[in-house]
Design a binder for these strands. Structure first.
Lengths: 218, 218, 218, 218
DNA sequence: GATGAATGAGTCTTCATTCAT
DNA sequence: GATGAATGAAGACTCATTCAT
């Protein structure tokens, strides 16, 4: 398509300024969309709102994204990718299961603190399965589940978790538990204002997931 | 008119044949809407679809509900009410905490099996929807959380759960865990086709919530 | 239903209650419609509003009137008829022109005081010519103009008004002048709270119409 | 493209070709709406009709006006403004009262001749519409009354009109008289086809308003 | 690249009117 | 006569997307 136009060597750099600006605009759109989607939801967000938030004309959005869906998909895949990356990273570290879980929980809470808008979107839009199943790569979402499931599976094999545990179901439970707490942050019913408060929550979540409500050896 | 046929039944039933038909139509609309919302989502559902599903003219929908939102709100409040009712019922029974949790989990799974459409809506359209949370009574939703929180609080006082447990946070975790499993049923990534399979899930969830991933005394 | 309870007497009278009741209901609808039309305008008034105001089911309205237009037409023709009647009555009396005008003006002001709703409708709806011309008998309206025009014409022949006066145009002016004052009453920009105030207005109008703004021989 | 043709004209015109086109489209919509409203009335006019008349797509109307009401309001405020302007202009001229009235009457008749559609709307949709009066600035309408009232008041102080005249009431009468004649033009019951005919009407109106039906010194 | 004017399909909602009971 | 459930045509309005400049 544009391969011929690329030219040699410096071409990449010559293209740079333009593509740099381009990339910046693209990023600005994504950032704006993240904010607007978080505030109004995917359906409630108008392309015009996103453009306005990004400080550009709304027609320009269509130079960077095929359509509105595409924007959500981009937010989703690009951010989720790094998330998945982290999951795999944690999964491949030679750490005890409890420590892996600790990092996982910490990671989730951290993201929620730093990028609440992004987390809001993840939580609110991604679970709209009927839409997702049709238009996006639900597989990509499931990869995250798989990563956690492998983690649990492996831990079970090593005897770090109960032998009769169903790894798949356990994954859903771990994921759901974390997600609801994050939702609490997002909708403001769980208000936390200090790093300590968040740290405390992490402890609680970790303890509860590992040893349950009853669990004493915490 | 047919008053004679009605006889001296309960006063409630005598509440006019017309109202009766009316009530039936209303129910038919709610049932149709539940199905359509579950299939297409609130935004994707057209009032015309609901009317068609209910086998009525679409203007009639507006005799029973102010607008589309109102239909969702009705599904929500009328079903959620009975749900809350059950929570309180379980909460007031003189049962050990573990048993209460068992019933709770069973209740959730049962509803999902019997009324998957309703559960789909609850999960997709209501529990995550800022729109809904903004326009309707978020308080009503939170009552469910409160009921569970009281349950946990009480159990803590009795020493049935860990002393340092944060009841509020624990509630979110319990709720979130259950919700995600149900979401798995809803979107079909967790396929269960027998009563045994569901029963097994209940055991798993209960065990995990009570004694955690590690938990041995299960 | 309750016919048997009514007892015997003559057939006419036995039918009387029914047609009497009928006539009453019809009147109640007209009265209600007058109020509602005055408040909300013809377009803004819903048949259901009228029925509610009349205290009946809205389907019943269609037993008495073909449709909404028909109600307005009835108000119009039945009330206007008596109005026209008065105009002709005044026109046929052997009175000096000034006296006729006085009675005319008094009549208008009186109606406005006693039946402001009716007057509001007359003023607001009847001039919507495009609708009127199509659906109603504009001729009936014009009869009123004709009556006044004849009055002026005759006065001119007798030398009671300026010889070069165009009776038709003068009619419009007289009519318009009165109508705007009444409109002032209706919309509340001309507030009058005593019989004297209204009487004073009548004097002013009469004086102005007869001898003009300048006019001294008043 | 046409920038070169524009040259170094006034800054106002340089205000971008795009805005220019925009302004033209807006004007085209207003003109179309004026025609359609006059023909079918505000309620009877469909936005689609207006768009078609303007030769544009349906949705474009909503780029320029919030809704149908807004279009009527724009017609009203933009035209009425110039109308009020003229009233004040006449009011501030050092002219005898009779001359002022002459100009006023002439002005009304002229507008009716030149922009019958506009006048139709003013009369049918605005000056009588409770809807309009409620939702918009009735004050703006009343300013016109005030202007005339001041004119009469001043004339009374100078002894140009009867000493016992109520200026406010007189204003309503003058206004109403004129309005009804214009209504006659609008609904076609007063057909005038020559400049002379209109001029003659002006004479009649002026004479009648100044010296009344009886008035001889005319 | 950038702009925003233009397009028009898609839906909700209203409400006069009909009709079974 | 009376009721109000049922119908469905009609129309306002939104907004994603295209495209000329």
């Amino acid at each position: 398509m544009n391969a011929g136009a690329e030219g040699a060597e410096s071409a990449e750099q010559r293209r740079a300024p333009r593509s740099k600006r381009s990339a910046e605009t693209r990023e600005r759109i994504l950032a704006a969309a993240t904010e607007v989607f978080a505030r109004s939801g995917f359906h409630g967000a108008r392309v015009a709102d996103i453009a306005e938030q990004a400080g550009i004309a709304y027609g320009l959005v269509y130079h960077y994204f095929r359509n509105k869906d595409d924007i959500l998909a981009a937010i989703f895949s690009e951010r989720w990718a790094q998330y998945i990356g982290y999951l795999h990273e944690v999964g491949s570290m030679p750490l005890p299961f409890a420590e892996r879980m600790r990092r996982l929980v910490h990671f989730w809470v951290e993201i929620s603190r730093r990028e609440p808008d992004l987390m809001t979107i993840m939580i609110n839009e991604i679970s709209r399965s009927y839409e997702f199943l049709e238009s996006h790569d639900i597989g990509t979402v499931l990869v995250a589940f798989d990563a956690i499931e492998s983690m649990i599976q492996e831990a079970r094999d090593k005897g770090e978790v109960a032998r009769d545990l169903d790894p798949q179901l356990a994954t859903y439970i771990v994921f759901g538990a974390a997600e609801m707490v994050l939702t609490g942050y997002v909708i403001g019913t769980l208000q936390r204002d200090s790093a300590e408060a968040f740290a405390h929550d992490e402890e609680q979540m970790l303890g509860l997931l590992l040893t349950g409500l009853v669990g004493e050896p915490r």
